[in-house]
Simulated assay, not measured.
Amino acid sequence: MPTLEKDIEDYLVEFQEKVPKETQDTLCNAIKKLEESDCFNKALKVGNKIPEFSLSNQDRKVINIKDIVEKNKYTVLCFFEGSWSPYAILELLALQKIVSQLKIFNASLITLCPQTQDKSSYLKEKHSFTFDILYDKNNTISKEFGINYTLSDEVIAVYEKQKIDILEANRNGTYDLPLPGTYIVNKNYEIIYAFVDANHRKRCEPKTITDTIKKDIINKR
């Protein structure tokens, strides 16, 4: 069965064939520095409770996380950086494949992103996503989860050469982004699974999400 990890590996093969080694080295060094930093010690972990929040979705409808958590047995929250990221697109496409299974488990999938609502609306329509994309303006919620970081000048320069305009995407005057973060929350707002990685090329495998929920259901019988 195809996996998200395999999809990312296939993309990286093409990326490495097309992109100059100097550019690849710059991006790899930036990942290494982020991995070696201690700026994510405050990231929410299993056992922590998530904060209550309200954000508007891609259609500018206000979504209160309280309503989602209390309506479902499980809530899956996935932070991604924007539709400009090929890794994020691969992740979202993979997540769409488990939406129907999540419904069987009485679980809801919510994604959060700092990019503007018009971009998220286009993204959802283009790929026929059936989950909401909440507008995390100024990365307010990713900061509360402790998974926010700022792009280095070297990476910004690379992105600009690749015509990736973070300032235009987020329109908040910063180069702040969320790390890839996936959380499974129960009805008590408690995190029962957490995935955060300083390497933006690594993403939570959707099967891990469904397997975690299955296991939790079985343990509660």
Results as ranks from 00 to 15, higher is better:
S142D: 09
Y74R: 00
P51N: 04
S100E: 14
N188C: 07
V99Y: 11
I209T: 05
L179D: 06
F131G: 03
S152D: 12
I141E: 11
Q16W: 04
N29P: 05
T182V: 15
I110M: 12
S128R: 09
L92W: 00
K143V: 09
Q96N: 14
I164D: 01
S56D: 10
N106W: 11
Y135F: 14
L12F: 02
C78F: 11
S37E: 13
N219H: 00
V185I: 15
I104G: 07
P20D: 08
P51Y: 04
C113W: 02
G82I: 05
I89P: 01
L112Y: 05
K6W: 05
D132M: 02
K187W: 02
A107M: 11
A43I: 06
I209K: 00
K103L: 12
N138F: 03
C113Y: 02
I217S: 00
S108Q: 15
K202N: 14
E70T: 15
V155Q: 09
L90C: 05
S37N: 12
N72W: 10
N48C: 08
T3C: 07
T212D: 01
N106M: 12
I68L: 07
I89Q: 11
K214D: 00
I156T: 05
S121H: 11
V76Y: 11
S142I: 09
K73Q: 11
I141M: 10
T23Y: 08
N48D: 15
K45T: 14
C113T: 15
Q24I: 15
P180C: 13
T212I: 04
K73T: 10
L77H: 03
T150W: 01
S120E: 12
D216K: 03
C78W: 03
G181Q: 07
L167N: 01
D7Q: 14
I217W: 00
K220L: 06
Q24E: 12
K42V: 13
V99Q: 12
S83N: 08
D25E: 15
I63W: 02
D197T: 07
